[in-house]
Structures are given as structure tokens and as C-alpha cells.
Simulated scan of single mutants.
Amino acid sequence: MTRRFPPPPPRDQPLSGARPSADARALLALRKSANKLVLGEPGPSPSELDELLRVAMRVPDHRKLGPWRFIVFEGEARAGAGRAFAQILRVRGAPSQQVEEAGKSMLRAPVVVAVISSPVDDGRTPVWEQELSAGALCYNLLLAANASGWAGVWLSEWAAYDKDAGVLLDLKSHERVAGFVHLGTAKAATPERVRAELEGRVQRWTGA
């Protein structure tokens, strides 16, 4: 495999707190999720995905707890997961269209990564901080994929919040799905969307 990223530095190696990069600034300024309907082959191979995940894990992580893990859906496993999700809705008597959509939900992209927030109960580190770290990881995975030539979108939808879907994914009682990150190749451009304005969202502290 041709590495797309430099290897991680040795532990305790001094690293610069800033890395000016015009390419990185352009990536951030123009970053956009792909529409889930335009993702297709190819996606990252297993070894390429492992590299993306290692890079994605370089996120803020208070006390170095690593409060997240991954469930990867590739190949035929995607269809199997979709059928299992569809069955959850079918036994509940959900409308046939919802059942059908659930069955296809994991086939939208060649690779789907479920990022699982798995906070560690160390008695010191707030769970909220650990959940934020999982969210940062989802976003970092998108950035790493985009920088490597793949398109992606971070979705949650009903399965991320469903108890039976959680049982299917073997989630522990303290775990939650931070998101399903779909990765592949964009087969069409996605138009820019309306973005929130900065005005009215910034308050500069001047004292009590």
C-alpha cells in the first residue's frame, strides 16, 4: 500500500503547535459532505481505511482515554446489516417504504464506518468531553478521506438512536453511535448549500 500520510511521530517527540498550509486552508474553506445518493465505487481498501482511521484518531482526547471504537461495514456485510436493520422495522409494522430504505441504507457507499462513542468511567473525565471527542473523530475521518481523494458523509438517522439497532451492533449500555460515516467516490458534484452566518453568533467577553 502506498501511504498517503506520514507515519506517526515517536512518543514524546516535540511537534510544532502550528503547521501553516495553503492546501489545508483550502480544504477546510471548501469542505463539503457528499450527497449520500451520489457515492459509489471505489472506496478505500481495508488497509487504506486503517490508515484513515489512525489519522482520524488524532483528535483532542482528555487524559488519553481513547473513548471510541469502530464498526466497519464492507462488501456483502453492508447488505447483511441493511437486512437486519430492515427486519427491526418490519416486525414493528413500519411502512414498507421505510423498511425498504432501511434495507438499502448501508449500500449507499462502498465503505461505512460506525463510530461508536465509548466513554471510559475513570471517575474524573466528564462523559460529555469524551462524546465530543467521538464527534471530532467523525469529522476528522471526513477530512482525512477528502484529503485522500474520497468523498464522504456523516449520517446518523434512526438506527443511531434505536435500542434494537444498538443490540444488533452489540453496543454496551454506556455506548452510543456517534455517526455512520459513508466513504466512497462522488459520482456527481454536490451544490453548495446555505451556510450559517457568523453575524449574531459571536460574543466577545468584556468582563462581568
Rank of each mutant, 00 (worst) to 15 (best):
M1S: 12
T2V: 11
R4V: 09
R4H: 13
R4M: 11
P6L: 15
P9G: 04
P9Y: 04
P9V: 08
R11Q: 05
L15I: 11
L15C: 13
L15W: 05
L15E: 04
G17T: 10
G17N: 08
P20Y: 05
A22Q: 07
A24C: 10
R25F: 02
A26P: 02
A26H: 11
L28C: 01
A29W: 07
R31C: 04
R31W: 02
K32Q: 15
N35C: 08
K36Y: 08
K36N: 06
V38M: 02
V38E: 00
P42S: 10
G43T: 06
P44Q: 10
P44T: 05
D50A: 15
D50Y: 00
L53W: 05
M57T: 14
V59T: 11
P60E: 02
D61T: 11
H62I: 09
H62V: 09
R63S: 14
K64F: 07
P67Y: 05
I71T: 03
F73T: 00
R78F: 01
A79D: 09
G80Y: 05
A84F: 01
A84I: 00
F85D: 01
R90E: 15
R90C: 12
V91R: 14
G93C: 05
G93D: 07
A94F: 08
S96V: 09
Q97V: 08
Q98W: 01
Q98A: 15
V99L: 08
E101T: 13
S105E: 07
S105Y: 03
R108F: 01
A114L: 03
I116Y: 06
S117A: 15
S118D: 10
S118M: 02
P119Q: 01
D121N: 13
D121V: 05
D122K: 04
T125M: 12
P126G: 09
V127E: 14
V127Y: 02
E129W: 02
E131V: 06
L132A: 14
L132H: 06
L132T: 10
S133D: 09
S133K: 05
A134S: 15
A136N: 13
A136D: 08
L137F: 06
Y139Q: 15
Y139T: 13
N140Y: 06
L142I: 12
L142C: 05
L142R: 03
N146E: 15
A147Q: 09
S148N: 05
G149W: 03
G149C: 07
S156F: 00
E157P: 00
W158N: 11
A160Y: 02
A160R: 00
K163P: 00
D164E: 15
D164V: 09
L171T: 08
K172E: 14
H174I: 01
H174D: 05
H174F: 00
E175R: 03
R176M: 04
R176S: 14
A178M: 07
F180T: 12
T185E: 04
T185C: 13
E192L: 08
R193E: 08
V194N: 09
V194E: 12
G200F: 06
R204C: 08
G207M: 07
